[in-house]
Amino acid sequence: MDTKLPWPFYTEPKWIDVHGLKTAYRREGAGEPVLYLHGNGMTRRWLPFYEELSRSVDLIVPDHPGFGDTEMPEWLDNFSDVVLHYAELLDTLGLEKVHVIGHSFGGWIAAEFASFYPERLKSLQLLTPAGLKGANLHDSFRQSGEEALERIFNGGADKYAEYTDDGDPTESLISNYKQQTTVARLAWQPRHNIKLPRRLGRVTAPTQVILPDEDRILNADVMRKYAEYIPGATLASISNPDAPTSHVPFVQAPKALAEMLSGFVAAASKD
């Protein structure tokens, strides 16, 4: 590993002006355009999982407004602001339709986006998605760093030091606080969208909901409801016998997950 990196997997972001908001993003690969919406954490880097996925698709990974290198704009108040930001980002990139993958908090954003702009999705994949009532197993705003790591990695965080290394402790605290602030801006209360179940009926793209072996952040029974609310959606699980997958399955099973996601993208692109 390059020791000069501020933290493992860091890469310099690209920048795009989205309706006045300087937005950081990373983009690699060729083929079907895939918009990947990250969860709350592990921003500002190009994960090995992204590298795997970008071998078969044109992978676009932006930092959400208020996450990573993208500043929180003063106009950001609720999910509709984020949804419009992503519509404008696609407009700016000249992409009419894309495949969307969303992980955790990014899964919630993806679900909102799909319910507002069903016609702009070629496919939708929700990976351990947040957003539904009753999904939170804990209060994410009241957990220590150690508690969070235990829950994210199912007690195995020490095995994944590359993923938990955030560089300078002060700057890491500030960056994480900023991201938590964005989550709180959008989802302090309520911590779900009560309208989402009905609105998800508008989604027309092929959809799959992917759950890990064991999720200690979000309730699997609640996450499964996404597949009930979205017409024709299917459920899939990403398993890894050697190291059972957790809320961040791309850490334990980057290759298998990338294959599963790109397989779904490929199948949806044939239609």
């Binding site: 605290l173 606080y177 602030t181 801006r185």
Partner: peptide, 14 residues
């Protein structure tokens, strides 16, 4: 996390 819920203090204060 109880004393300083997200956004309750500024980055400068942190």
């Amino acid at each position: 996390h109880d004393s300083f819920p997200p956004g309750h203090v500024t980055s400068e204060s942190l």
